[in-house]
Nucleic acid binder design. Structure first.
Length: 434
RNA sequence: GGAGAGAUGGCUGAGUGGUCGAAAGCGCUCCCCUGCUAAGGGAGUAUAGGUUAACGCCUAUCGAGGGUUCGAAUCCCUCUCUCUCCGCCA
């Protein structure tokens, strides 16, 4: 959520920055300014009346104790009238407040000044590349074919169990997936200094609001109902990413200065309805309704949060480097960044069988946008309450990493070489050809 | 799922309709005193919002939301969470 004070103090700046993400957002600025004024007028008026009522009530108490009952009674009638006015004005004030909040909750974060302005993903900017595309003396197969031949993923039965977009990992496939989860967590815990948490995979509505998933993207989530109780709808959701529970760990808290920075990492499955998304329903593992991911979350002081973002990005890169997978880094343009982000870098890994790069990580600095939504604060060195910056990054998403891995390391005989760091986890250096 | 108990400031804990935003203690900060330390004395110590150039003033908040009342931490209703016991259960 954006700070209402920014709108008051520099409306033109906010309008200009919002416009880079779409004019439908910048058009709201005037509404916000108007509602803000209305809200404050209503509050001032109602608070004056409340002050009046409070002091009159005290007088009544005094009169009663002095047994001046008649005077007290007439005073009561007077105050009752004030009370009626108050309840009417209160309603108006809270309505205005809610209206304002509803608009604010639906506005994205302002992009950082360095973010390239663009209108689609085509305007994302390539920052760097690491490694080389591997060369093959045969035609590299797509992962779907490899998976089917080696029985790593049973697409047909996955779909039978849960519909298209759900995967049944099998045998070596299941073991590789588990090995990857374990490996990624170990790197982030032991080498990158993150604290591992294992969060609930179902969260309440407020958590989804907090990270900016809701209210705008309610159509993309899986809602959970408790048994047959339809009243329980709209309260619990399958997490689309571990960011939802983990970034919210400290919501509504005031952290002490010395508690920061917080570095968390977490494994979780991620559930995405992907309603209307391109590629849903197509075969394979690239876009599915459930995939595994190891997520990184940082809660840090605003000063230096961009250094923290760079470090987080290298933490994720380290994974791909250690597995010797070719990748590139993009800085997302204003149009392609997620809602709450001020700056986002995507890591895309090369998948030879696809002949394409696959997004496996997205590292974002949301600055104080999420902290404000979830009312998370910390006391700075001067004892002032401030909103910390919250960063999130995938470290990394697994289904696509799985794809890149098997497509990169496939051998002419159909077997798959396992990169050295994974060998202990998988207890083999090669997934045999069938 | 059933029965009971509870939820007050950083913590402990008083407070059952009228200067209660809240006693007291602990903790913390600052000051004073004292060779050092310990002890002692004094002051301060929640959050959000409105208003003001500022000092300040005002409003709201005692788990959350509603209600009764001129007035609610205090009475009533609903909900959430915690604890104890019972049932069920991985």
């Amino acid at each position: 959520m954006l700070d209402i004070r920014q709108f008051r103090e520099s409306p033109e700046h906010v309008r200009e920055r919002l416009a880079t993400r779409g004019i439908e957002f910048s058009e709201k600025v005037d509404d916000i300014l108007r509602l803000d004024t209305e809200r404050r007028e209503a509050i001032t008026a109602v608070e004056e009346l409340k002050a009046k009522r409070n002091s009159a009530s005290k007088e009544i108490g005094l009169l009663m104790s002095q047994k001046k009952l008649e005077e007290a009674e007439s005073k009561k009638a007077e105050v009752r009238e004030i009370g009626d006015q108050i309840s009417q004005l209160d309603i108006k004030a809270s309505q205005t407040d809610e209206e304002l909040r509803n608009i604010l909750l639906r506005l994205p974060n302002l992009p950082h000044a360095d973010v390239p302005i663009g209108s689609s993903e085509d305007d994302n900017k390539e920052i760097s590349k690491w490694g080389e595309k591997p060369s093959f003396d045969f035609d590299p197969k797509p992962h779907t074919e490899i998976c089917e031949t080696l029985g790593l993923v049973d697409f047909a039965r996955g779909a039978k169990l849960s519909g298209s977009g759900f995967l049944l990992y099998s045998d070596w496939g299941a073991r590789l997936e588990r090995a990857l989860i374990q490996y990624l967590l170990d790197i982030h815990v032991h080498e990158n200094g993150y604290t591992e948490v294992s969060p609930p995979f179902i969260v309440g509505y407020d958590c989804m609001i907090g990270v900016g998933q809701f209210p705008k993207f309610e159509d993309q989530a899986y809602m959970v109902q408790e048994g047959l109780d339809e009243d329980s709808r709209g309260k619990m959701y399958l997490i689309p990413t571990a960011e939802a529970p983990v970034a919210n760990i400290h919501r509504e808290e005031i952290l002490k200065n010395e508690e920061l920075p917080k570095y968390y990492c977490a494994y979780s499955p991620c559930f995405r309805a992907e309603a209307g998304a391109a590629g849903v329903g197509t075969r394979g593992m690239i876009r599915v309704h459930q995939f595994d991911k190891v997520e990184l979350i940082k809660i840090v002081e605003p000063e230096g949060s961009y250094d923290e973002l760079n470090k987080m990005l290298s933490n994720a890169e380290k994974i791909l480097q250690s597995l010797n997978l070719h990748y590139r880094i993009l800085q997302l343009c204003t149009a392609d960044m997620s809602f709450g982000s001020a700056t986002t870098y995507d890591i895309e890994v090369w998948a030879p069988g696809q002949g394409d790069y696959l997004e496996v990580s997205s590292c974002s600095n949301c600055e104080d946008y999420q902290a404000r939504r979830m009312n998370l604060r910390y006391k700075d060195a001067e004892g002032k309450n401030r909103h910390p910056h919250i960063l999130n990054g995938s470290g990394t998403a697994l289904a696509r990493l799985f794809v890149a891995l098997i497509e990169t390391y496939q051998q002419p005989d159909g077997s798959i070489l396992i990169p050295e760091p994974l060998q202990n986890y998988l207890r083999t250096d090669r997934i045999p050809a069938s």
